[in-house]
Write a protein that binds this DNA or RNA. Structure first.
Lengths: 198, 198
DNA sequence: TGCCAGAAACCGACCGGTCGGTATGTCACT
DNA sequence: AGTGACATACCGACCGGTCGGTTTCTGGCA
């Protein structure tokens, strides 16, 4: 259920998925007929239903690729074993950059997450929770080591930080006034400032 | 277009609106047939279309009541003329409390905001922007008066703070472990800590 | 007060259109 | 001749909105 499937590699599958991603982000899941996905990907309905079980299956694939990437980024930083301050900063900056770069996936994710069936929803929630807990763990470690203040509960800090990230799809534009890297640095510094305040 | 309509006061209208709100929050806008709104409100389809122009009109009414309340809260605090620190704190705390109390409206708002037609979208965006700008103005005032640090741009602080609030519908539960008032205080203090850090 | 006419407040069967999904066929390649 | 990879025509369920009709309210007038 979780992952068993081999990586989607057929070019047809990739075309379908990227067309679906773009259209779902632009017009919403319910506002996008399967027929229009098919046309945008320049395939036929038969081809789509040959590779995917259902329209919902397209959604799940989109979610999965997003979350898998986020978890991989997080694990890589944690494995690097940086001190808490640098670890938190790196995770946040990378998360914001990655979200900016894949803003369509993030948009679809936040807008349509309620459409998953129970099994898929459970899998997605478990992955998100794992991210949340690992991030919080980094903050808790910093508190134990005395580099972060204990004024605000770690959970609340995570809620604020991830809240900003998950809200990005509603306002972020790649051609906006501020480059993502600059934004990421500002947000990370602001969060660290709150974390380090006496 | 903006507001002209007298306040909805007929009990039938209120029943329809509150049934729609509950169902939209629970199953999503597209997942809720007009027929089921009608049944939940114990009226007929004729009655619904007598009072409302369309299914989308229900959405707009929900949005409007949410934003109108937020702006009224904000204006009240600004009118009180508190010093920046207290003003920012009060606005944030009230916004979080209000969002927690009307979490269904917030949920529908964030999830289905793309469904509005151009005119309604424009009106809603203008109101949201007004909130955003006014909030940012409070922070800028604090910077001018020297009580807030200028390390992080005011705009970025607003993005973080409102990001947390707008993300609440995806995780907040009234029966959760932490009372909304406590959460609000923690978040406000955390943001202020970042704002006041040297 | 009694009555009536028009307006407002509904009622609910029905329609036109859309959409996800399927059934069946074809064809290249092994 | 069997199999995977499509192609295409089509189905049936569903849904938003309409529309002709009915009931209820309201106010003016004798």
């Amino acid at each position: 259920m979780a992952d068993g499937r081999p990586v989607r590699q057929s070019p047809v599958e990739r075309r379908i998925l990227s067309a679906a991603l773009r259209l779902f982000a632009e017009r919403g899941f319910d506002g996008t007929p399967v027929q229009s996905v098919v046309e945008a990907a320049a395939v036929t309905k038969g081809a789509l239903y040959h590779y995917f079980d259902s329209k919902d299956d397209l959604l799940y694939e989109i979610y999965h690729s997003l979350i898998a990437r986020q978890l991989a980024d997080l694990d890589r930083v944690i494995a690097a074993g940086l001190p808490p301050r640098e670890a938190v900063r790196t995770v946040l900056v990378e998360l914001i950059l990655s979200t900016a770069e894949h803003i369509d996936e993030a948009k679809v994710f936040t807008r349509e997450s309620h459409r998953l069936d129970d099994a898929a929803m459970h899998a997605v929630r478990a992955d998100r929770r794992r991210y949340h807990v690992a991030f919080r763990g980094l903050i808790e470690q910093g508190r134990r080591e005395g580099v972060f203040s204990t004024a605000t509960p770690a959970e609340t800090v995570v809620i604020v930080a991830l809240g900003m990230v998950n809200q990005m799809p509603s306002w972020y534009r790649a051609d906006g006034p501020k480059p993502a890297a600059e934004l990421a640095a500002e947000v990370a510094d602001f969060v660290l400032a709150g974390l380090e305040a006496k």
